[in-house]
Amino acid sequence: MEKRFTDIRGLFSQAMRRYGIYLILLLIVFAGSVLSPVFLTSKNIMSVGRQVSVTGILAFAETILIIGGNVDLSLGSQVALSGMISINTYLGTGSAVLAFASAIAVCVCCSLFNAFAITKLQMPGFVATMSMDFIARGAVYVYCKGTPIYQVGDYGKISSTYLFGVVPLPVVFLLGVAVLAAVILRQTCLGRNIYAVGGNAEAAFASGISVSRTKFKAFAISGLFTGIAAVIQMARLNTGMPDTANGYHGDAIAAAVIGGASFTGGAGTAAGTLVGAFVVGFISNILNLKGISIYVQQIIKGILIIIAVSVDIAGKNRKIRQVAREKKEPVEPREGPA
């Protein structure tokens, strides 16, 4: 009586579920190439890559957290705070390496404090990281009295340099972070633990995983990524702007969610997030090339994000129904009884 599901419809929904987001990316690329002749040039793609580098790297930070059942709403403020400190470090020492190191150090501290609040003080992630957002923003102001740093020397070169004359440095960093995130998630024991804790923290605990230690490590990685993003953001601005990166955690979470990271925890991939970041970036790029007002752009972006996520979820529900048929036991789809 057990039948394997082999007809065309089954294969299609299987494909949608696994590759739905790539399909959406393909559709957008196709639309872009039709709507504007300059869209599908390597120069433009690289430019978009540079545009999404900061929120993309932050999206990887959020992805690792979301997979582990957490979230961080303070990333934007961390970028501003650590970015300003990093610029001063650079001006004082002349070393780009130290600039990165100082930004990363600040972000890791903030993130570990978030982890502490969530694990030891038992605060909900939303509340703890939102508080950190206020603290960090305030700290930027205290640190620089709200005054931008106008003369930053060569700092901007971190954003304007090209590798092999073709690939902007921010894109190199973005891809580097993507690879690092992918390796961590897929190949390491820590990655497995993060998926487990996010998927079912109680079962992970009952399997011998230290839930709090895993969370600390996840937040530490998030801090590392955020520090890198901070340097790139300030380099891109070529100025030390204390009021930058406002609300960037929202774009980061959007990219992660489009890429398949789910707030129920235990789901998400690095590749998906990279695709998600580019989906958002391409939409913005195409609309700019068509000269559409930024306020209309926001509406369109929001609608397209909803569509992208719904398609992804629908694919997953189809899979649940399919498996249920094979078990001969009807199961309710995730959105609840019809």
């Binding site: 998926y195 487990a196 998927g199 079912n200 079962a203 992970a204 605990f205 925890g265």
Partner: peptide, 9 residues
Amino acid sequence: RRYGMIGCR
């Protein structure tokens, strides 16, 4: 279901 396995993995 609660303590025994990570359902989504």
